[in-house]
Design a protein around this nucleic acid. Structure first.
Lengths: 200, 200, 200, 200
DNA sequence: GATGAATGAGCCTTCATTCAT
DNA sequence: TATGAATGAAGGCTCATTCAT
């Protein structure tokens, strides 16, 4: 059969991306079959290949789009004009909100790096490094102007990111603490890590 | 052909465990085939089934052994007699050293939870929760006696663990800092997280 | 998108025939996909079906056109008025020239008979037999008037055709001998096969 | 299920070779599926891969074995001690008998060269050239000692081979002429091609 | 305990063909 | 007439697992 009335190429591609994202995040790239993705999208397996040339490209597409969207979103959220403490708080808020909204993307962008073929791996790795420069720059700025007391800027940067990302593994909307409360705790924890005096 | 002189069942099983660990950590459970494990062990695929009834059991075996060994090691390293600050430092040292030595086990014990069938999943999850009680208990003790100033004990516990585990993703023996130096930084970072005054 | 200005249906059909001929000759009917034919023609696969109802029809079309063109060309080249020796030489020249010009058609008309469905096979087979009657008739004429000394007319006919066709498998324009030279050799070889005394 | 009692690896491999030979000769390499070969062999498709690593290897195996067997058989049948006319007759007899017995191997060794990947192609092509040296050497010998009157030794060699091979396309056991009769005709035709005087 | 040959299901991908646009 | 998106079947090959030897 040919195209059914009402369906369009862009819609199918977007549906495929959404379904693949969900399944890759839940079961892992290797454990998900093209047939499974197709079935949940409501098409036959072969139809996927009208939109993505291989399974690998589908993963690559998800990761590139995620990283680029993240970088673009941060470019808009970044406030280099703010003093370092406020800039850091801004980063933490951004990172937590953005990553909770896209926990599946974040998860596979860490977990499925190993499923990427070499060249694709490098592309994503480079984008990731680029994002990690954001907190590092703020830390350096705060260290320079004396508002932070940093132990080791590189280790501290990685510690902050790991700590924030860890949240996605246990956060549940129905949990004990609201997102606002958790956010507040994390902001204070990060301030401690960078040796900033608490204002209160 | 029969068994080659000199090889024994226990040896093969151990070699299989070691190879499977390496491959699962590198490529993920779903992406590794029994044939691949067998080939690197130097046997045929069928021989694996003399030692492990299924691929799932092989993973389960690795994870259970890892978690039980970890808990046993901690039971030996734990010093409940120490004051909270020293106990926390002891935990951090233990965790870093142990996890760097077993980075593959740690990695798959986080990553491949989703590859476990339901019952196996619960077993491992329970063991993991059990380990996480260790830092939590120290935090609670320090909070009670006033040596720590904890923001939220549960969030802080998870933050500490996530921060420490993050290290395994970037640590390289040949890196800028020695293990001792990194350890020292992390200990100070953890002290900051729990609101302990730095002594020096 | 609609038809691009300048392209016409007949042009596309002819381009498809040419491309299919080339690909079938090079890789074989079964190994060539409709997408491949379409791509080299500069259209999408679906467009082929505006010109040929199935892949099988496309092959059939090529073979029927080839055989009919061959028969028509021979009808024009044939000189039944000539004495048998001159008529035979005329046939050999015609066959060599025609088959070298159409080596791809000749090749698939032998090779892809097996790819034809039954009815189509019979059509082509009949046309081929019809062409083979040409040399046979000349042989019979020469045998009757004593200008040839034929061993077995049927076997000799097939031998001549096989010998001549074999040339298409090794002939290269850049080879040691020119086409004229090769032709001269083949004419003399054929004369030997039919037991005709060499004039020179 | 595992191996059924009574079956053995070597037997299955041989059966697979025989079936593949038959099917490749009948339908062409590209048109035959591994499942089809497996089904006629009485195993599942996957089992083929215990004996041949790929479909291409299966074809390659058939062709290499055929060419090597042919060369070996000719090495035994060759009689370099005979005078050129008798040696040529010996070659024609050998070639006809051998090729009729192995018409499928001969057919695919010509037809499926194009299905071979580059390296495999070269191997077979080299073996084929090697066989073609046999008649060429006899022709040269007969030309040198004056027993033949050769027009062009290379063209004549190819003509002889093409003429003889052509027989496999039309020979039927139930045909008008017996194999002995056909053989006799072909021997006399070849003698004519090399310009040897007929004895009787 | 190990091999090697087998199964049956499933993998990613391509195929000829169809049809709304 | 052509596109591009779809189908359903089939392609070569790999998988976890079994079992006679």
């Amino acid at each position: 059969m040919a195209r059914r009335t009402g369906s369009s190429g862009a819609e199918t591609a977007e549906k495929l991306r959404e379904v693949a994202l969900e399944l890759f995040a839940r079961s892992g790239y290797a454990a998900v079959s093209m047939r499974e993705i197709a079935a949940r999208t409501g098409v036959q397996a072969g139809a996927i290949y009208n939109h993505f040339p291989t399974k690998q490209h589908l993963l690559q597409d998800l990761l590139v789009v995620h990283m680029e969207t993240l970088l673009k979103a941060w470019a808009e959220a970044d406030r280099p004009d703010l003093p370092a403490p406020a800039a850091l708080e801004n980063f933490v808020r951004f990172h937590i909100r953005y990553h909770l909204d896209r926990s599946r993307e974040v998860f596979i962008s860490y977990m499925e790096l190993r499923s990427l073929e070499d060249e694709n791996f490098s592309v994503i790795e480079r984008l990731r490094r680029s994002y990690e420069k954001a907190p590092r720059a703020i830390l350096d700025r705060g260290a320079a102007d004396g508002s932070f007391d940093i132990l080791d800027p590189q280790v501290t940067t990685m510690a902050i990111i790991a700590m924030l990302n860890g949240m996605t593994t246990w956060y549940r909307e129905s949990g004990r603490l609201s997102l606002d409360e958790i956010e507040a705790v994390y902001i204070r924890l990060v301030k401690r890590l960078v040796g900033q005096k608490e204002e209160d």
